[in-house]
Amino acid sequence: MIPATFSYARPTTIDEAIALLTKHGSGAKVLAGGHSLLPAMKLRLAQPEVLIDIGRIAGLNTIAERDGRVVIGTMATHAEIESSALVARACPLLGQVAARIGDAQVRNRGTIGGSLVHADPGADFPAAILALDAELRLASPRGSRSVKAAAFFEAMMQTVVQPDELLFEITVPKTATSAAYVKSEQKASGFAICGVAAIVDAQAKTVAVGVTGVASKPYRATAVEAALRGRALTPDAVAAAAALAANGVEPLGDIHASPEYRAHLAAVNTKRAILKAVAQG
């Protein structure tokens, strides 16, 4: 459990971090909470030449309200999101998801930004940020840009973040309480075999469903959403629509869950998440 040699930099501003990323290119890795990166380094599966620790950049863990949206700094830990009064009031789904991540130690160190950029297919937050239509704000030498959650994840552990870019904040719209996260966890790692985040808008008669853990990248269950648009959310209607939760995706299979079981859980957890969201509304 000894990593290969690396050098370590600890910038104090975003600009400084971007300059370091620009200088070191793909040889550099950004260290946020380190809960995925450090184990990979200790196993020598990851051997970055430079580690850029963004933990000392002031303000990166801020959780605040701005322009009618909730803004979450990339270094906000799962525990901070779980216990934030603002999140509980203005976007409770994120708090619910944060509470289901790993265990207390992981939640105290792990960060939302680190989790999103690492893009583990079993990570919990992606389900929520997809359902919430979050915007992810990236800084680079070219300035900053916003990426919609739906466009952020490219493939397993791959996102649109370029080697010289840094995800610095996530913004989500304020949402009502009609939201729920239902998760089946991989017993060893605590990652999701299937995690479903659902948001129900009773007035607009729409649901938004984000699914993680099932496929190589998280996705919106658009078939489910379409089937329920404008419909009354009765248990039967929801169950029928939820059966479409893995439509068009190629489910992952491993020693913890077969593709068929993941697809099945997608349907069950989607049904449960929507009904739970309805019940909370």
Binding site: S26, K29, S36, L37, A40, R44, L45, A46, Q47, P48, H118, A119, M156, M157, Q158
Partner: peptide, 9 residues
């Protein structure tokens, strides 16, 4: 060979 952040020689 690199895959995401996991890269080895």
């Amino acid at each position: 060979v690199g895959f995401a952040g996991l890269k080895g020689k």
